[in-house]
Write a protein that binds this DNA or RNA. Structure first.
Length: 519
DNA sequence: AGTGCAGTTGACTTT
DNA sequence: TAAAGTCAACTGCAC
Protein backbone atom coordinates (compact mmCIF):
# COMPACT_ATOMS: atom_id res chain seq x y z
CA UNK A 1 0.00 0.00 0.00
CA UNK A 2 1.19 3.50 -0.74
CA UNK A 3 2.60 5.75 1.91
CA UNK A 4 3.75 8.93 0.11
CA UNK A 5 1.57 12.04 -0.04
CA UNK A 6 2.09 13.80 -3.36
CA UNK A 7 1.61 17.58 -3.23
CA UNK A 8 1.14 18.58 -6.84
CA UNK A 9 2.16 22.22 -7.32
CA UNK A 10 0.55 24.04 -10.23
CA UNK A 11 -0.11 27.78 -10.01
CA UNK A 12 0.43 27.94 -6.24
CA UNK A 13 4.22 28.26 -6.03
CA UNK A 14 4.64 29.02 -2.31
CA UNK A 15 4.77 27.19 1.02
CA UNK A 16 2.91 29.80 3.12
CA UNK A 17 -0.89 29.58 3.20
CA UNK A 18 -0.77 26.36 1.22
CA UNK A 19 -3.52 24.07 2.53
CA UNK A 20 -2.62 20.97 0.46
CA UNK A 21 0.99 21.10 1.70
CA UNK A 22 -0.06 21.54 5.33
CA UNK A 23 -2.66 18.80 5.24
CA UNK A 24 -0.34 16.35 3.47
CA UNK A 25 2.57 17.02 5.81
CA UNK A 26 0.38 16.15 8.82
CA UNK A 27 -0.28 12.72 7.40
CA UNK A 28 3.05 11.31 6.29
CA UNK A 29 6.07 11.77 4.01
CA UNK A 30 5.50 14.36 1.29
CA UNK A 31 6.65 14.31 -2.32
CA UNK A 32 6.44 17.96 -3.44
CA UNK A 33 6.06 17.70 -7.21
CA UNK A 34 5.95 20.10 -10.13
CA UNK A 35 5.34 18.63 -13.56
CA UNK A 36 6.65 20.57 -16.56
CA UNK A 37 4.07 19.70 -19.19
CA UNK A 38 5.44 20.35 -22.70
CA UNK A 39 1.95 20.12 -24.19
CA UNK A 40 0.68 22.83 -21.83
CA UNK A 41 3.47 25.16 -22.92
CA UNK A 42 2.65 24.56 -26.58
CA UNK A 43 -0.91 25.79 -26.16
CA UNK A 44 -1.85 28.96 -28.04
CA UNK A 45 -2.20 30.99 -24.85
CA UNK A 46 1.21 30.01 -23.42
CA UNK A 47 4.45 31.91 -23.94
CA UNK A 48 8.12 32.10 -23.06
CA UNK A 49 7.62 35.05 -20.70
CA UNK A 50 5.11 33.08 -18.64
CA UNK A 51 7.45 30.11 -18.35
CA UNK A 52 10.33 32.43 -17.43
CA UNK A 53 8.25 33.86 -14.57
CA UNK A 54 7.09 30.40 -13.49
CA UNK A 55 10.62 29.05 -13.65
CA UNK A 56 12.07 31.71 -11.36
CA UNK A 57 9.29 31.03 -8.89
CA UNK A 58 10.06 27.30 -9.02
CA UNK A 59 13.74 27.89 -8.25
CA UNK A 60 12.80 29.78 -5.10
CA UNK A 61 10.09 27.27 -4.15
CA UNK A 62 12.65 24.49 -4.43
CA UNK A 63 14.92 26.33 -1.96
CA UNK A 64 12.07 27.00 0.45
CA UNK A 65 11.03 23.35 0.44
CA UNK A 66 14.64 22.18 0.76
CA UNK A 67 14.92 24.29 3.91
CA UNK A 68 12.02 22.25 5.30
CA UNK A 69 13.88 19.03 4.48
CA UNK A 70 12.57 18.00 1.08
CA UNK A 71 13.36 19.94 -2.09
CA UNK A 72 10.84 20.37 -4.90
CA UNK A 73 10.92 17.46 -7.32
CA UNK A 74 10.54 18.52 -10.95
CA UNK A 75 9.65 16.11 -13.71
CA UNK A 76 8.99 16.73 -17.38
CA UNK A 77 6.19 14.93 -19.22
CA UNK A 78 2.53 14.11 -19.16
CA UNK A 79 1.11 14.37 -15.62
CA UNK A 80 -0.60 10.97 -15.49
CA UNK A 81 2.58 9.25 -16.71
CA UNK A 82 4.65 11.10 -14.09
CA UNK A 83 2.18 10.25 -11.32
CA UNK A 84 2.06 6.60 -12.43
CA UNK A 85 5.86 6.41 -12.22
CA UNK A 86 5.80 7.98 -8.74
CA UNK A 87 3.16 5.46 -7.73
CA UNK A 88 5.24 2.49 -8.96
CA UNK A 89 8.33 3.83 -7.21
CA UNK A 90 6.93 4.96 -3.83
CA UNK A 91 3.31 3.97 -3.68
CA UNK A 92 1.11 7.07 -3.54
CA UNK A 93 -1.26 7.23 -0.58
CA UNK A 94 -2.94 10.51 -1.46
CA UNK A 95 -2.75 13.26 -4.08
CA UNK A 96 -3.08 16.87 -2.90
CA UNK A 97 -3.41 20.08 -4.88
CA UNK A 98 -5.18 23.41 -5.14
CA UNK A 99 -8.27 23.78 -7.28
CA UNK A 100 -7.37 25.35 -10.60
CA UNK A 101 -9.68 27.44 -12.77
CA UNK A 102 -7.61 27.04 -15.89
CA UNK A 103 -8.11 26.88 -19.63
CA UNK A 104 -9.78 24.05 -21.56
CA UNK A 105 -6.52 22.13 -21.76
CA UNK A 106 -5.84 22.09 -18.00
CA UNK A 107 -9.50 21.26 -17.36
CA UNK A 108 -9.25 18.17 -19.60
CA UNK A 109 -5.89 17.24 -18.03
CA UNK A 110 -7.38 17.46 -14.53
CA UNK A 111 -10.17 15.11 -15.59
CA UNK A 112 -7.55 12.62 -16.83
CA UNK A 113 -5.76 12.88 -13.49
CA UNK A 114 -9.04 12.34 -11.63
CA UNK A 115 -9.84 9.28 -13.73
CA UNK A 116 -6.36 7.85 -13.15
CA UNK A 117 -6.49 8.48 -9.39
CA UNK A 118 -9.91 6.82 -9.19
CA UNK A 119 -8.67 3.81 -11.16
CA UNK A 120 -5.76 3.42 -8.74
CA UNK A 121 -7.86 3.93 -5.63
CA UNK A 122 -5.86 7.06 -4.74
CA UNK A 123 -7.86 9.89 -3.18
CA UNK A 124 -7.26 13.35 -4.73
CA UNK A 125 -8.03 16.27 -2.44
CA UNK A 126 -8.24 19.74 -3.98
CA UNK A 127 -8.43 22.89 -1.84
CA UNK A 128 -9.56 26.36 -2.96
CA UNK A 129 -7.02 29.19 -3.06
CA UNK A 130 -9.26 32.00 -4.35
CA UNK A 131 -12.88 32.99 -3.79
CA UNK A 132 -14.00 30.64 -6.57
CA UNK A 133 -16.71 28.25 -5.38
CA UNK A 134 -16.73 24.73 -6.85
CA UNK A 135 -19.39 23.64 -7.57
CA UNK A 136 -21.53 26.76 -7.45
CA UNK A 137 -25.24 25.99 -7.17
CA UNK A 138 -26.25 29.66 -7.46
CA UNK A 139 -24.68 33.12 -7.43
CA UNK A 140 -26.75 34.02 -4.35
CA UNK A 141 -24.56 34.52 -1.31
CA UNK A 142 -21.34 34.40 -3.31
CA UNK A 143 -19.86 37.60 -1.87
CA UNK A 144 -20.37 36.28 1.66
CA UNK A 145 -18.43 33.13 0.88
CA UNK A 146 -15.62 35.16 -0.65
CA UNK A 147 -15.45 37.20 2.54
CA UNK A 148 -15.42 34.12 4.77
CA UNK A 149 -12.51 32.63 2.83
CA UNK A 150 -10.47 35.80 2.77
CA UNK A 151 -11.00 36.38 6.50
CA UNK A 152 -10.01 32.86 7.58
CA UNK A 153 -6.56 32.42 9.16
CA UNK A 154 -3.34 32.19 7.12
CA UNK A 155 -1.81 28.73 7.24
CA UNK A 156 1.85 28.83 8.28
CA UNK A 157 4.30 26.67 6.34
CA UNK A 158 4.96 23.21 7.80
CA UNK A 159 7.78 23.22 10.34
CA UNK A 160 9.58 20.37 8.59
CA UNK A 161 9.10 17.74 5.90
CA UNK A 162 10.21 14.14 6.30
CA UNK A 163 12.91 13.67 3.63
CA UNK A 164 12.42 10.97 1.01
CA UNK A 165 15.68 9.12 0.43
CA UNK A 166 17.43 9.03 -2.93
CA UNK A 167 15.10 11.17 -5.02
CA UNK A 168 16.69 13.08 -7.86
CA UNK A 169 15.15 16.58 -7.64
CA UNK A 170 15.42 16.94 -11.43
CA UNK A 171 16.35 20.03 -13.41
CA UNK A 172 14.07 22.94 -14.23
CA UNK A 173 14.26 23.49 -17.99
CA UNK A 174 15.17 26.88 -19.41
CA UNK A 175 12.99 28.69 -21.94
CA UNK A 176 15.14 27.30 -24.74
CA UNK A 177 15.16 23.77 -23.32
CA UNK A 178 11.37 23.83 -23.30
CA UNK A 179 11.47 24.86 -26.96
CA UNK A 180 9.81 28.23 -26.46
CA UNK A 181 10.68 31.08 -28.81
CA UNK A 182 11.88 34.30 -27.22
CA UNK A 183 8.96 36.73 -27.26
CA UNK A 184 10.68 40.06 -26.73
CA UNK A 185 9.82 40.56 -23.08
CA UNK A 186 13.00 42.48 -22.36
CA UNK A 187 11.74 44.21 -19.21
CA UNK A 188 9.72 41.59 -17.38
CA UNK A 189 9.05 42.12 -13.68
CA UNK A 190 11.05 39.86 -11.35
CA UNK A 191 9.44 36.66 -10.13
CA UNK A 192 9.71 34.56 -6.97
CA UNK A 193 8.03 34.98 -3.61
CA UNK A 194 10.79 37.13 -2.12
CA UNK A 195 10.47 39.66 -4.95
CA UNK A 196 6.70 39.49 -4.62
CA UNK A 197 6.94 40.38 -0.93
CA UNK A 198 9.31 43.27 -1.61
CA UNK A 199 6.89 44.58 -4.23
CA UNK A 200 3.93 44.14 -1.90
CA UNK A 201 5.51 45.93 1.06
CA UNK A 202 6.59 48.76 -1.19
CA UNK A 203 3.01 49.15 -2.32
CA UNK A 204 1.57 48.97 1.20
CA UNK A 205 3.93 51.49 2.70
CA UNK A 206 4.54 53.83 -0.26
CA UNK A 207 3.06 53.58 -3.71
CA UNK A 208 -0.56 52.79 -2.77
CA UNK A 209 -0.79 56.45 -1.79
CA UNK A 210 -0.69 57.26 -5.53
CA UNK A 211 -2.81 54.29 -6.60
CA UNK A 212 -6.08 56.11 -7.28
CA UNK A 213 -4.44 59.04 -9.03
CA UNK A 214 -2.20 56.97 -11.31
CA UNK A 215 -4.29 53.85 -11.95
CA UNK A 216 -5.41 54.90 -15.43
CA UNK A 217 -2.17 56.48 -16.58
CA UNK A 218 -0.17 53.87 -18.50
CA UNK A 219 3.20 55.40 -17.61
CA UNK A 220 2.60 56.07 -13.92
CA UNK A 221 0.55 52.93 -13.24
CA UNK A 222 3.75 50.90 -13.66
CA UNK A 223 5.03 52.17 -10.31
CA UNK A 224 1.78 53.13 -8.57
CA UNK A 225 -0.15 49.89 -8.94
CA UNK A 226 0.45 46.87 -6.74
CA UNK A 227 1.92 44.83 -9.61
CA UNK A 228 0.88 41.70 -7.75
CA UNK A 229 -1.16 40.25 -10.61
CA UNK A 230 1.53 37.85 -11.81
CA UNK A 231 2.35 36.80 -8.24
CA UNK A 232 -1.32 36.01 -7.67
CA UNK A 233 -1.59 34.16 -11.00
CA UNK A 234 1.40 31.96 -10.22
CA UNK A 235 0.62 31.75 -6.53
CA UNK A 236 3.86 33.12 -5.13
CA UNK A 237 1.60 35.18 -2.85
CA UNK A 238 -1.80 34.06 -1.62
CA UNK A 239 -4.76 36.37 -2.08
CA UNK A 240 -5.79 35.80 1.52
CA UNK A 241 -2.51 37.13 2.91
CA UNK A 242 -2.70 40.14 0.58
CA UNK A 243 -6.25 40.97 1.66
CA UNK A 244 -5.45 40.62 5.34
CA UNK A 245 -2.27 42.72 5.12
CA UNK A 246 -4.17 45.38 3.20
CA UNK A 247 -6.92 45.55 5.81
CA UNK A 248 -4.39 45.80 8.61
CA UNK A 249 -2.61 48.64 6.82
CA UNK A 250 -5.94 50.37 6.20
CA UNK A 251 -6.71 50.40 9.94
CA UNK A 252 -3.26 51.80 10.61
CA UNK A 253 -3.73 54.58 8.03
CA UNK A 254 -7.11 55.53 9.47
CA UNK A 255 -5.56 55.73 12.93
CA UNK A 256 -2.86 57.99 11.46
CA UNK A 257 -5.46 60.33 9.95
CA UNK A 258 -4.94 59.23 6.32
CA UNK A 259 -8.50 58.44 5.16
CA UNK A 260 -7.81 59.07 1.46
CA UNK A 261 -4.90 56.66 1.46
CA UNK A 262 -6.97 54.06 3.31
CA UNK A 263 -9.70 54.46 0.69
CA UNK A 264 -7.17 53.77 -2.07
CA UNK A 265 -6.35 50.44 -0.42
CA UNK A 266 -10.04 49.72 -0.15
CA UNK A 267 -10.39 50.26 -3.91
CA UNK A 268 -7.49 47.88 -4.43
CA UNK A 269 -9.19 45.22 -2.27
CA UNK A 270 -12.40 45.64 -4.29
CA UNK A 271 -10.45 44.69 -7.40
CA UNK A 272 -9.34 41.47 -5.77
CA UNK A 273 -13.01 40.73 -5.17
CA UNK A 274 -13.69 41.29 -8.89
CA UNK A 275 -10.69 39.07 -9.71
CA UNK A 276 -12.56 36.11 -8.19
CA UNK A 277 -15.93 37.22 -9.57
CA UNK A 278 -14.56 36.90 -13.11
CA UNK A 279 -12.73 33.64 -12.45
CA UNK A 280 -16.01 32.20 -11.18
CA UNK A 281 -17.58 32.77 -14.61
CA UNK A 282 -15.05 30.52 -16.35
CA UNK A 283 -15.30 27.98 -13.53
CA UNK A 284 -19.07 27.80 -14.08
CA UNK A 285 -18.92 27.89 -17.86
CA UNK A 286 -15.62 26.69 -19.37
CA UNK A 287 -16.98 27.23 -22.88
CA UNK A 288 -16.67 31.00 -22.49
CA UNK A 289 -13.00 30.60 -23.41
CA UNK A 290 -14.08 29.61 -26.91
CA UNK A 291 -17.60 30.75 -27.68
CA UNK A 292 -19.80 33.77 -27.15
CA UNK A 293 -21.78 33.83 -23.90
CA UNK A 294 -24.70 35.36 -25.81
CA UNK A 295 -25.21 33.15 -28.88
CA UNK A 296 -26.72 35.98 -30.96
CA UNK A 297 -23.30 37.65 -31.03
CA UNK A 298 -21.50 34.60 -32.45
CA UNK A 299 -19.87 34.93 -35.85
CA UNK A 300 -20.29 38.69 -35.91
CA UNK A 301 -16.67 39.69 -36.49
CA UNK A 302 -14.42 38.84 -39.40
CA UNK A 303 -10.81 37.78 -39.04
CA UNK A 304 -8.40 39.77 -41.18
CA UNK A 305 -4.79 38.62 -41.02
CA UNK A 306 -3.57 42.11 -41.93
CA UNK A 307 -5.61 43.95 -39.31
CA UNK A 308 -4.72 41.38 -36.66
CA UNK A 309 -1.01 41.61 -37.48
CA UNK A 310 -1.02 45.42 -37.44
CA UNK A 311 -2.76 45.50 -34.06
CA UNK A 312 -0.58 42.71 -32.62
CA UNK A 313 2.68 44.42 -33.55
CA UNK A 314 1.64 47.93 -32.55
CA UNK A 315 1.45 49.22 -36.13
CA UNK A 316 -2.12 50.46 -36.48
CA UNK A 317 -1.18 54.09 -37.13
CA UNK A 318 -2.87 55.24 -33.92
CA UNK A 319 0.09 56.23 -31.72
CA UNK A 320 -1.43 55.77 -28.27
CA UNK A 321 -2.77 52.30 -29.13
CA UNK A 322 0.54 51.29 -30.70
CA UNK A 323 2.51 52.60 -27.72
CA UNK A 324 0.35 50.54 -25.35
CA UNK A 325 0.89 47.39 -27.40
CA UNK A 326 4.65 47.90 -27.72
CA UNK A 327 5.02 48.57 -24.02
CA UNK A 328 3.06 45.40 -23.29
CA UNK A 329 5.29 43.39 -25.62
CA UNK A 330 8.41 44.68 -23.86
CA UNK A 331 7.25 44.49 -20.23
CA UNK A 332 4.50 41.83 -20.10
CA UNK A 333 2.25 44.16 -18.15
CA UNK A 334 -0.21 46.99 -18.85
CA UNK A 335 -2.70 48.81 -16.63
CA UNK A 336 -6.32 47.75 -16.70
CA UNK A 337 -7.77 50.67 -18.62
CA UNK A 338 -5.30 50.33 -21.48
CA UNK A 339 -5.85 46.56 -21.68
CA UNK A 340 -9.55 47.29 -22.10
CA UNK A 341 -8.80 49.92 -24.73
CA UNK A 342 -6.60 47.54 -26.75
CA UNK A 343 -9.35 44.94 -26.76
CA UNK A 344 -12.01 47.51 -27.56
CA UNK A 345 -10.05 48.75 -30.59
CA UNK A 346 -9.53 45.16 -31.79
CA UNK A 347 -13.18 44.19 -31.37
CA UNK A 348 -14.91 47.36 -32.54
CA UNK A 349 -12.78 49.61 -34.74
CA UNK A 350 -10.87 46.64 -36.25
CA UNK A 351 -13.84 44.25 -36.06
CA UNK A 352 -11.65 41.26 -35.14
CA UNK A 353 -12.99 38.13 -33.37
CA UNK A 354 -12.09 38.35 -29.66
CA UNK A 355 -10.70 34.82 -29.61
CA UNK A 356 -7.84 35.82 -31.93
CA UNK A 357 -6.99 39.12 -30.27
CA UNK A 358 -7.47 37.41 -26.89
CA UNK A 359 -4.90 34.71 -27.65
CA UNK A 360 -2.33 37.34 -28.58
CA UNK A 361 -2.92 39.26 -25.34
CA UNK A 362 -2.94 36.05 -23.29
CA UNK A 363 0.58 35.28 -24.48
CA UNK A 364 1.76 38.82 -23.77
CA UNK A 365 0.41 38.91 -20.22
CA UNK A 366 2.88 37.48 -17.72
CA UNK A 367 -0.07 37.52 -15.31
CA UNK A 368 -2.41 35.65 -17.69
CA UNK A 369 -5.28 34.32 -15.58
CA UNK A 370 -7.70 32.45 -17.88
CA UNK A 371 -10.85 33.20 -15.89
CA UNK A 372 -10.28 36.94 -15.80
CA UNK A 373 -8.86 37.13 -19.28
CA UNK A 374 -11.61 35.40 -21.24
CA UNK A 375 -14.39 37.02 -19.22
CA UNK A 376 -12.82 40.40 -19.99
CA UNK A 377 -12.39 39.58 -23.69
CA UNK A 378 -16.10 38.86 -23.97
CA UNK A 379 -17.10 41.83 -21.85
CA UNK A 380 -15.00 44.32 -23.82
CA UNK A 381 -16.34 42.86 -27.07
CA UNK A 382 -20.02 43.09 -26.17
CA UNK A 383 -20.63 39.34 -26.49
CA UNK A 384 -21.86 38.62 -22.95
CA UNK A 385 -25.22 40.23 -23.61
CA UNK A 386 -25.42 41.36 -19.98
CA UNK A 387 -22.96 44.26 -20.00
CA UNK A 388 -23.51 47.52 -21.78
CA UNK A 389 -21.49 48.17 -24.92
CA UNK A 390 -18.38 50.19 -24.10
CA UNK A 391 -16.51 51.47 -27.09
CA UNK A 392 -13.36 53.31 -26.05
CA UNK A 393 -12.37 56.35 -28.04
CA UNK A 394 -8.60 55.85 -28.30
CA UNK A 395 -8.01 59.50 -29.12
CA UNK A 396 -9.91 60.62 -26.03
CA UNK A 397 -7.97 58.10 -23.92
CA UNK A 398 -4.73 59.48 -25.33
CA UNK A 399 -5.64 63.07 -24.49
CA UNK A 400 -6.96 62.12 -21.03
CA UNK A 401 -4.14 59.83 -19.95
CA UNK A 402 -1.13 60.95 -21.98
CA UNK A 403 -1.83 64.63 -22.61
CA UNK A 404 1.83 65.56 -23.06
CA UNK A 405 2.57 62.53 -25.21
CA UNK A 406 5.43 61.30 -23.03
CA UNK A 407 4.24 57.70 -23.10
CA UNK A 408 3.85 57.76 -26.89
CA UNK A 409 7.27 59.29 -27.46
CA UNK A 410 8.86 56.76 -25.14
CA UNK A 411 7.49 53.71 -26.95
CA UNK A 412 7.37 55.05 -30.52
CA UNK A 413 10.81 56.53 -31.23
CA UNK A 414 9.84 57.17 -34.84
CA UNK A 415 7.50 59.90 -33.57
CA UNK A 416 10.17 61.60 -31.45
CA UNK A 417 10.25 64.80 -33.53
CA UNK A 418 6.54 65.02 -34.39
CA UNK A 419 5.13 68.35 -33.10
CA UNK A 420 2.96 67.99 -29.99
CA UNK A 421 -0.19 69.22 -31.73
CA UNK A 422 0.01 66.32 -34.19
CA UNK A 423 1.46 63.60 -31.95
CA UNK A 424 -1.72 61.69 -31.10
CA UNK A 425 -3.07 62.00 -34.67
CA UNK A 426 -0.07 62.27 -36.99
CA UNK A 427 -2.28 61.98 -40.08
CA UNK A 428 -3.17 65.65 -39.55
CA UNK A 429 0.37 66.62 -40.59
CA UNK A 430 0.76 67.91 -44.11
CA UNK A 431 3.52 66.47 -46.32
CA UNK A 432 5.93 69.28 -45.58
CA UNK A 433 5.57 68.88 -41.81
CA UNK A 434 6.09 65.12 -42.12
CA UNK A 435 9.34 65.60 -44.02
CA UNK A 436 10.60 68.27 -41.62
CA UNK A 437 10.07 66.07 -38.52
CA UNK A 438 11.45 62.95 -40.16
CA UNK A 439 8.23 61.00 -39.88
CA UNK A 440 6.67 60.35 -43.26
CA UNK A 441 3.45 58.37 -42.94
CA UNK A 442 3.59 55.09 -44.79
CA UNK A 443 7.38 55.12 -44.59
CA UNK A 444 8.46 55.81 -40.98
CA UNK A 445 5.12 55.19 -39.29
CA UNK A 446 1.90 53.62 -40.66
CA UNK A 447 -0.99 55.61 -42.02
CA UNK A 448 -4.17 54.77 -40.05
CA UNK A 449 -5.32 51.30 -41.12
CA UNK A 450 -9.00 52.25 -40.72
CA UNK A 451 -11.02 55.47 -40.35
CA UNK A 452 -11.20 55.32 -36.55
CA UNK A 453 -14.34 57.31 -35.90
CA UNK A 454 -16.29 55.86 -38.84
CA UNK A 455 -15.29 52.33 -37.78
CA UNK A 456 -16.43 52.97 -34.20
CA UNK A 457 -19.77 54.35 -35.38
CA UNK A 458 -20.36 51.37 -37.66
CA UNK A 459 -19.50 48.90 -34.88
CA UNK A 460 -21.79 50.71 -32.45
CA UNK A 461 -24.71 50.61 -34.89
CA UNK A 462 -24.18 46.91 -35.61
CA UNK A 463 -24.05 45.94 -31.92
CA UNK A 464 -27.05 48.03 -30.89
CA UNK A 465 -29.09 46.76 -33.84
CA UNK A 466 -28.35 43.22 -32.66
CA UNK A 467 -29.39 44.05 -29.11
CA UNK A 468 -32.72 45.38 -30.30
CA UNK A 469 -33.40 42.12 -32.13
CA UNK A 470 -36.10 39.66 -31.10
CA UNK A 471 -35.33 37.47 -28.08
CA UNK A 472 -31.95 39.12 -27.38
CA UNK A 473 -33.12 40.34 -23.98
CA UNK A 474 -34.78 37.06 -23.02
CA UNK A 475 -31.54 35.17 -23.61
CA UNK A 476 -29.59 37.91 -21.77
CA UNK A 477 -31.81 37.52 -18.69
CA UNK A 478 -30.85 33.87 -18.35
CA UNK A 479 -27.16 34.78 -18.62
CA UNK A 480 -27.62 37.46 -15.98
CA UNK A 481 -29.16 34.99 -13.54
CA UNK A 482 -26.25 32.61 -13.99
CA UNK A 483 -23.30 34.99 -14.09
CA UNK A 484 -24.37 38.45 -13.00
CA UNK A 485 -23.06 40.13 -9.88
CA UNK A 486 -25.51 40.26 -6.98
CA UNK A 487 -23.69 43.14 -5.38
CA UNK A 488 -26.33 45.71 -6.31
CA UNK A 489 -29.20 43.51 -5.18
CA UNK A 490 -31.51 41.57 -7.44
CA UNK A 491 -30.29 40.54 -10.87
CA UNK A 492 -31.32 43.14 -13.39
CA UNK A 493 -33.90 42.15 -15.96
CA UNK A 494 -33.88 43.21 -19.58
CA UNK A 495 -36.34 45.98 -18.71
CA UNK A 496 -34.22 47.37 -15.92
CA UNK A 497 -31.12 47.13 -18.12
CA UNK A 498 -32.77 49.67 -20.39
CA UNK A 499 -33.88 47.57 -23.30
CA UNK A 500 -36.73 49.28 -25.06
CA UNK A 501 -39.40 46.95 -23.81
CA UNK A 502 -42.95 46.77 -22.59
CA UNK A 503 -46.14 46.53 -24.57
CA UNK A 504 -46.08 48.88 -27.54
CA UNK A 505 -49.11 50.39 -29.20
CA UNK A 506 -51.81 49.77 -26.64
CA UNK A 507 -51.64 53.35 -25.41
CA UNK A 508 -51.27 52.14 -21.86
CA UNK A 509 -48.43 51.73 -19.40
CA UNK A 510 -45.25 50.88 -21.29
CA UNK A 511 -42.87 50.07 -18.49
CA UNK A 512 -42.95 48.70 -15.00
CA UNK A 513 -40.31 49.85 -12.59
CA UNK A 514 -38.72 46.63 -11.39
CA UNK A 515 -35.66 48.20 -9.90
CA UNK A 516 -36.27 48.42 -6.15
CA UNK A 517 -32.76 49.63 -5.53
CA UNK A 518 -33.17 52.98 -7.21
CA UNK A 519 -32.90 56.10 -5.03
C1' DA B 1 -30.20 96.50 -9.65
C1' DG B 2 -32.80 93.27 -12.22
C1' DT B 3 -33.35 90.96 -16.76
C1' DG B 4 -32.05 88.44 -20.70
C1' DC B 5 -28.82 85.71 -23.01
C1' DA B 6 -24.84 82.87 -24.38
C1' DG B 7 -21.87 79.64 -22.75
C1' DT B 8 -20.62 76.17 -19.12
C1' DT B 9 -21.26 72.41 -15.91
C1' DG B 10 -23.13 68.34 -14.07
C1' DA B 11 -26.65 64.83 -13.65
C1' DC B 12 -28.95 61.66 -16.21
C1' DT B 13 -30.37 58.95 -20.44
C1' DT B 14 -29.53 56.68 -24.74
C1' DT B 15 -26.78 54.21 -27.94
C1' DT C 1 -14.25 49.73 -17.06
C1' DA C 2 -17.48 54.26 -22.57
C1' DA C 3 -19.19 58.08 -25.25
C1' DA C 4 -22.59 61.09 -26.97
C1' DG C 5 -26.70 63.45 -26.32
C1' DT C 6 -30.22 65.97 -23.44
C1' DC C 7 -31.74 69.08 -20.13
C1' DA C 8 -31.80 71.98 -16.24
C1' DA C 9 -29.18 74.84 -13.24
C1' DC C 10 -25.65 78.00 -13.01
C1' DT C 11 -22.27 81.80 -14.33
C1' DG C 12 -20.58 85.95 -16.37
C1' DC C 13 -21.70 89.78 -18.82
C1' DA C 14 -24.14 93.52 -21.35
C1' DC C 15 -27.75 96.52 -20.98
Amino acid sequence: MGCVHVVWFKRDLRIVDHAPLVEASCRGPVLPLYVVEPELWQQQDASARQWAFCREALVELRQALAALGMPLVVRRGEVVAVLARAHRHFGVAHLWSHEETGNGWTYARDRRVAAWARSQGIPWSERPQFGVVRPLPSREGWAGRWEARMASPILPAPVALEPLAAVDPGSIPSVAELGLADDGCVARQPSGRSNGLVQWHGFLTQSSQRYQRDLSNPARAVSSCSRLSAHLSWGTLSMREVIQDSRGRRDQLLAQGQPAWALALHRFEERLHWHCHFMQKLEDQPSLEFSELHPHTAGLRELSADRLAAWSLGCTGLPFVDACMRSLIATGWLNFRMRAMLLSVASYQLWLPWRDSGLHLARLFVDYEPGIHWSQCQMQSGTTGINTIRIYNPLKQALDHDPRGLFVRRWLPELAQVPAVHLHHPWTMDGETQRRCGCVLGRDYPSPIVDWSAAAALARDRLWALRRGAEFGTVADAIQRRHGSRRAGLPKTALARGRRGGVVGDGGVQQLCLDFNQR
